[in-house]
Each structure stands twice: as C-alpha cells, then as structure tokens.
Amino acid sequence: HNLTITQGKLFFHYNPKLCLSEIHKMEEVSGTKGRQERNDIALKTNGDQASCENELLKFSYIRTSFDKILLRWEPYWPPDFRDLLGFMLFYKEAPYQNVTEFDGQDACGSNSWTVVDIDPPLRSNDPKSQNHPGWLMRGLKPWTQYAIFVKTLVTFSDERRTYGAKSDIIYVQTDATNPSVPLDPISVSNSSSQIILKWKPPSDPNGNITHYLVFWERQAEDSELFELDYCLKGLKLPSRTWSPPFESEDSQKHNQSEYEDSAGECCSCPKTDSQILKELEESSFRKTFEDYLHNVVFVPRKTSSGTGAEDPRPSRKRRSLGDVGNVTVAVPTVAAFPNTSSTSVPTSPEEHRPFEKVVNKESLVISGLRHFTGYRIELQACNQDTPEERCSVAAYVSARTMPEAKADDIVGPVTHEIFENNVVHLMWQEPKEPNGLIVLYEVSYRRYGDEELHLCVSRKHFALERGCRLRGLSPGNYSVRIRATSLAGNGSWTEPTYFYVTDYLDVPSNIA
C-alpha cells in the first residue's frame, strides 16, 4: 500500500525493539523526510534493546553428524571492536523451508527459537588472519532439518551509529543413524509349514526405512522333555500350542467401542483428552525405555581390526524358502538304536541362519518350516543398504507352526516275539517326523474274553527296548493296539495285532 503524509511529521519514542533503520525507511515511504526535528525521533529510546544489523554474515563451514552440527561463519568486528559482546545463534526444527525470524513471537518477546549466546573469538592483530567464530550444536535429532541463523550482539553506541551483522536463515539436516526397533511384532501360524509375521514401523526411523531383515531359527525343545518319565503317576503330560491366527481386521481397528449394538453396526467412541494424553505418555515412556535398553543392555560386537582377528559373527547367506525346513542338525536320541526319531534339535552355532529381506511392506510369510516346531524370529529395521547396512537392534518374537495331521501315527506293522515265561516283546517304529517329539506310547492289549488293559511306555523305555515287553501273560489269544502321544496330543491307534500265548508248562520236552 502507498502511504503519503502531505502535512505533519513523524514522532517515535520509547520503541526499544524498533531499529532506527526501520524508522528511516518509514520517513522515505511516507514522504516526511526532512520535516522531523532532532528530538522527534529519539536516538536513545528507539532500538536500544534490539540488534540492528546492516551487514550480512556468511557461514564459512558446515559439518553434520547424526546428532551434531558444527558451524563456522566469517569474522565480524565493528569499528570499535570492544562493542562486540558476542553472537546469538538461533535454531529450531523446520520440516519445511518457510521459516521466518519472527515465527511464534508474542507480545512478551518470546519466540519459538532456541538461542545460544556465543563469546567472540580472540581478536588477531592481523586483519587478514582473524579467527572464524563458530559453535557445535549438540543433542539434535537424527535425520531432522533445522533452520539456523546467527547475528551479532553489540553494545549501545553513544554516537548512535547503527552497526551489526546478521546471516540469512539456512537449512541444515542432520545425518541418518540406526533406527529404533520395529514396533509390535506379531507372529502367527496359518499352516503346519508357515508363519505369518506382521509389525509396525519404528517410532524413530532416523532416516528413510529402506528394508527390513527377518531372521528365523528353529528352537530346540526343553531338555526336561527328553529326561522326564511322563508315565509316572502324578506327572502331567506336557503340551505345546501353536500360535493362533490373526483376529479379523475389524476387531483390530483402534479407537473402536468394545460393545456392539445388537441391531447392527455401531460407531466408534472418540477417545477423551485424558485417554489420548495417557497414550502419549505411555508411548514416550516406551521410547525412553527402549533407548535405555539399547544403550545399557546391548553391547556392540567388536569388529575385526587390522591384526587379522576374525569377526566372530557368522556370515549372512541367503537361502531359498524351500530350504528352511531342514535348518537344524538332527541327532538321534540314543545312538545305539537307529530307529528312534531325530527330534532332539541342538543347533550348531556355526550354522548360517536363513533370512529374508523385506522391502516396502511390514509383513512376511515364512514358508518351508517344520510342522509343530518353535521358531525364534528376529526382526531388524534398516535405513541404508549400501555401502553397508545400517540397521536397528533386533526385536524378537516366537511362534510355533501348526501340527501336521497323521504325523504322530505309527507307520509300519507292530511285530512281536514270544519268549519263555510268557513274555512277549512288542516292537514298532517311532514316527519319523512327529509333531514336536514323542513323549510316550500307549499300549492297549486284551486277552479274548477279558477286559482291555493299558500300559504306558516312556520315551526312554522305548529307546532301550525298541518297544516294550509284556510279562506274566496268561495263555490265550491276544490283540494289541499302540498309539503315540506327542507334544500336540495323541496320534491314531494302530491296526490290531494278534498273537497267541501258550502255557509254557505244557511245552513238550526233548528229553527222552
């Protein structure tokens, strides 16, 4: 807008934040220059609390790290170098490059900038070799853009010569660093050979998330399962459950009422301010606690030095998902009996873990797994792929695949051998790939016309006998059925096997 004052003059007093240069501009645009008398524009009460600059400061050096910015700028000295009290560095987070010096300023003089007072450097006698002032900004957020400017702080001049310097606002972004852990990993099994893994992005990506790394490792069953005799009275049979499938998407929606109208769909109840505040506090606490764990609990591995020492970490090797089922080394339970199943799973520490690289999504279907087997899954978020990966501390989750139908069934015939004193040795093959492992066998036998009897055969007993022995049988026709019990439950009964026990007292003698 054009402003013209045809008559009258300007009068400025007691404006401590208004620089004289701005008042002189007002004289020019209003056409009143030359009308004012000496005392109409006070030299001592206008701009006496402001830094009124008329020179431009330029930054000469900028260096960044993930949490620091090192700045240096060209030296500046007023005509009387004693008038320079120091520099004021202003900075704040700036997602967009549209910041002005006066953003967030209120009537009390406060604003949204963080201000650092910096002492002037030592003055050199040689004007050509003056030290460049600077400042190291610490405690910054990774991968965050900051708006920065600097200006001088000078003393009051009796001659009211307006001098000083100020830089333009520059924008500097800190470097990326390792992201925080992925949030809320959930693993479920939808079949006997697959596990579905879902997660949420890290709360602090500290860069642009480029991919996720998912490692999985087959877990050995508890050692007590191999040692305890679950045929003993009072000892509860062990059981394991597989990871249940995901709930429906509708039930997972946030901010939804727990109660549904019987007449149909209901609208979600909005969260109160107290609920939102509580969630923010919980989120802040979780982030602080995660940072504490990362800094205190997890110790970084030592990389190899120039002395030739090897990095103890196993090298990563990509495998196809079809090879995942046989990740671990199978060892027989008892070496003397080769027909026992290889369900003991000690994992070799030198073995390469299978892994998958996930790009542009937060889910993965891990296939080719062994049925009813526990897996430990390790999830890392990465925001750099080359020249070397920059990934987060791992988040861990466990899951067990679903049982395989008929995996616990005894394959092959049940054979028998009759000894003296009416002892019958029953023999059968253990299931080759049971659900988890076989903890015991149930032997059901009966003599024709009598009630059915049951015998429990422990895992250890089966390994020693290759089956079991029935003792003290009365003469007669017998039928026997056997079924295995694994961590997933009972298998199917075998087809009945028949044998006849004679009275050993009636056996004919070869003595003449």
Score class of each variant (00 low, 15 high):
506 D>N: 14
496 P>R: 04
360 N>S: 09
463 A>K: 08
431 P>A: 10
342 S>W: 02
224 E>V: 05
441 Y>K: 00
287 K>R: 08
490 N>A: 04
481 R>Q: 03
509 S>R: 05
415 T>V: 12
261 D>G: 10
366 I>Q: 01
388 E>Y: 13
356 E>Q: 07
242 W>F: 05
285 F>V: 06
272 T>V: 09
414 V>D: 00
229 D>V: 06
505 L>S: 09
264 G>F: 02
271 K>S: 07
208 N>A: 08
484 A>L: 02
353 R>Y: 12
366 I>E: 00
391 C>M: 03
363 S>I: 10
502 T>W: 04
510 N>I: 13
223 S>P: 15
290 E>Q: 15
385 D>G: 11
263 A>S: 11
247 E>D: 08
286 R>I: 06
381 A>L: 03
350 E>S: 13
343 T>H: 11
306 G>T: 13
272 T>H: 12
290 E>V: 04
395 A>T: 06
424 V>N: 00
310 E>R: 06
381 A>V: 06
443 V>E: 00
287 K>M: 08
397 V>T: 04
456 C>L: 03
396 Y>V: 05
334 V>L: 10
296 V>Q: 13
250 D>H: 08
261 D>H: 11
264 G>A: 15
227 E>H: 10
221 E>T: 05
389 E>T: 12
327 V>S: 11
474 S>K: 08
403 P>L: 08
351 E>T: 13
222 D>P: 06
501 V>T: 04
351 E>K: 14
376 R>W: 06
499 F>R: 01
506 D>G: 13
238 P>S: 10
408 D>E: 02
275 Q>F: 09
238 P>G: 12
393 V>H: 12
489 G>L: 05
401 T>N: 01
307 T>E: 14
477 N>D: 07
371 H>R: 12
309 A>Y: 07
437 L>W: 03
264 G>H: 11
221 E>M: 14
367 S>D: 06
223 S>W: 09
321 L>I: 03
234 G>T: 09
468 C>S: 03
402 M>P: 06
448 Y>A: 14
266 C>Y: 15
379 L>C: 09
316 R>A: 08
343 T>P: 08
339 N>S: 12
446 R>L: 07
250 D>G: 10
257 S>N: 07
221 E>P: 05
223 S>G: 05
317 K>H: 12
232 L>R: 14
326 N>I: 12
376 R>L: 07
492 S>G: 12
471 R>K: 12
483 R>H: 03
390 R>L: 11
207 G>R: 06
371 H>M: 01
287 K>Q: 08
329 V>R: 09
502 T>V: 13
267 C>S: 07
388 E>M: 11
479 S>W: 06
374 G>T: 12
407 A>C: 01
217 E>C: 14
445 Y>P: 01
505 L>Q: 07
280 L>V: 14
299 V>Y: 13
322 G>K: 05
336 A>C: 13
236 K>N: 12
268 S>C: 15
242 W>C: 03
504 Y>G: 06
396 Y>M: 05
499 F>H: 01
432 K>F: 09
386 T>K: 09
469 R>P: 03
421 N>H: 08
256 Q>L: 12
257 S>K: 07
298 F>G: 05
377 I>A: 05
356 E>N: 13
454 H>D: 15
380 Q>T: 15
273 D>E: 11
302 K>E: 14
357 K>G: 04
469 R>L: 09
232 L>H: 11
437 L>H: 03
466 R>C: 14
419 F>K: 12
385 D>N: 08
289 F>T: 07
318 R>V: 13
223 S>K: 04
478 Y>V: 01
367 S>W: 12
490 N>Y: 15
224 E>L: 05
477 N>Q: 04
282 E>S: 08
412 G>D: 13
488 A>D: 03
215 F>P: 00
303 T>C: 08
507 V>H: 01
471 R>A: 15
344 S>M: 09
317 K>W: 04
476 G>H: 00
410 I>H: 05
325 G>L: 15
341 S>V: 11
465 E>N: 09
496 P>K: 06
338 P>A: 08
384 Q>T: 10
248 S>P: 08
291 D>A: 11
372 F>G: 05
326 N>L: 15
362 E>Y: 14
263 A>H: 07
490 N>H: 01
404 E>T: 07
429 Q>R: 04
463 A>Y: 06
237 L>D: 10
284 S>E: 02
360 N>P: 08
258 E>S: 11
476 G>I: 00
332 P>K: 07
246 F>N: 14
233 K>M: 12
502 T>N: 12
383 N>S: 04
471 R>C: 11
243 S>A: 12
277 L>Y: 03
293 L>V: 05
318 R>C: 06
212 Y>L: 03
290 E>G: 15
492 S>H: 14
395 A>I: 07
416 H>R: 05
311 D>N: 14
218 R>N: 11
350 E>T: 08
438 I>T: 10
455 L>C: 13
254 H>L: 13
400 R>Q: 05
489 G>W: 03
207 G>C: 01
353 R>L: 13
489 G>N: 14
387 P>L: 09
499 F>S: 00
213 L>F: 06
394 A>C: 10
434 P>N: 03
284 S>I: 01
460 K>S: 12
500 Y>G: 07
337 F>H: 07
472 G>L: 08
264 G>Q: 02
321 L>E: 12
369 L>P: 00
306 G>C: 12
440 L>E: 05
228 L>M: 09
244 P>Q: 12
455 L>I: 08
488 A>M: 06
257 S>G: 06
306 G>F: 12
505 L>P: 12
246 F>Q: 09
395 A>Y: 11
315 S>Q: 10
300 P>S: 08
399 A>G: 11
219 Q>P: 04
310 E>G: 08
291 D>S: 07
394 A>R: 07
453 L>P: 03
205 P>F: 15
373 T>R: 04
487 L>G: 02
267 C>G: 04
346 P>K: 11
463 A>G: 12
287 K>P: 12
301 R>F: 02
383 N>A: 09
289 F>P: 08
339 N>R: 11
502 T>S: 06
501 V>P: 02
341 S>D: 05
255 N>E: 07
